[in-house]
């Protein structure tokens, strides 16, 4: 209903710059996750596309995009490279991280492997440091069952503070729940309050010392805390973004987009 407004809205200008064509789309959804969690299967099942699914780490070397519709809305799905972390300096991790930070997707789906949840949650926690709008997709539930592993998705969702959905992407089990959760988060209907990991006390102190400065420089920046952490860690790309004014620009867009997002929510609420 407000695609015209969207085309001119600054967040979408940024999307276009990042090479994502968002014409005719209401929301942009990013798909993140560890390698080998069936991320490509989820992507294929949602979009109906047939990206090849191989069983080896780093198979998807190019960024894939697709679209799906739900509740009268069009969603653009961007498949990010599979990574274990967002902290190292590898090329893949930089692509994923930059998209989450600068692309500001309306919702991020983190696909996790139910058979190795502990390892996968590491990435989930890192994604939740950057964005509030996330859904955890606990995939490969069939394999977990075969291995005698049970995952309590409700408890996980409660602990993480974002929706968690169990799926078997190859048989499309649980996908409708996933799409509904994504829609809820993307439209702002589902309120999320992600669990953040408390860093050691002295690190927290340093963050507290830095966040006000960042907010002073770029008021309204959504992930000031994360930016502070990355700066303390000497992250090259974030330093550059700070110096070039990219971060400040991000904050400006966020402020301008805020009333629009509010009106979107109102429109949705009115329609129902």
């Amino acid at each position: 209903m407000n695609t015209e407004a969207c085309d001119s809205c600054p967040a979408h200008v940024q999307m276009a710059k990042m090479g994502v064509d968002i014409a005719n789309c209401d929301h942009v959804v990013a798909l993140a996750g560890n390698p080998n969690t069936g991320k490509s299967s989820v992507f294929n099942a949602l979009t109906g596309l047939r990206q090849h699914v191989g069983n080896w780490t780093g198979k998807t070397v190019t960024r894939a995009e697709g679209a799906f519709g739900y509740g009268g809305k069009r969603y653009k799905l961007v498949d990010l490279p599979g990574t274990y972390s967002l902290l190292s300096a590898s090329h893949d991790e930089e692509i994923s991280r930059n998209f989450l930070l600068f692309g500001q997707p309306d919702c991020t789906v983190v696909v996790v492997d139910a058979t190795a949840l502990e390892r996968n949650l590491n990435l989930v926690l890192q994604v939740l440091e950057i964005t509030d709008r996330a859904v955890v997709c606990v995939n490969l539930m069939d394999e977990a069952k075969r291995k005698g592993i049970e995952v309590d998705v409700r408890s996980l969702s409660r602990d993480l503070g974002v929706p968690a959905v169990s799926t078997v992407a190859r048989t499309k089990e649980g996908l409708s729940d996933l799409v509904a959760s994504v829609a809820g988060v993307a439209c702002g209907e589902t309120k999320t309050s992600p669990s953040r990991v408390a860093p050691p006390a002295e690190v927290q102190e340093a963050i507290d010392g830095l966040v006000p400065l960042i907010q002073g420089m770029a008021p309204g920046l959504p992930s000031a805390r994360w930016v502070a952490l990355r700066l303390l860690d000497g992250d090259h790309k974030v330093r550059e973004a700070l110096l070039s004014g990219e971060l400040a620009g991000l904050a400006d867009r966020q402020r301008q987009a805020a009333p629009l997002a509010a009106s979107r929510i109102k429109a949705i609420a009115g329609a129902q």
């Binding site: 949840l117 502990e118 390892r119 949650l121 590491n122 989930v124 926690l125 890192q126 592993i149 049970e150 995952v151 309590d152 998705v153 408890s155 996980l156 602990d159 993480l160 669990s195 990991v197 408390a198 860093p199 050691p200």
Partner: peptide, 15 residues
């Protein structure tokens, strides 16, 4: 600390 938290969460929801 990230992994410790991940371990706690997994410990609570995985059997």
């Amino acid at each position: 600390s990230l992994y410790q938290r991940a371990g706690e969460l997994a410990g609570r929801s995985v059997r």
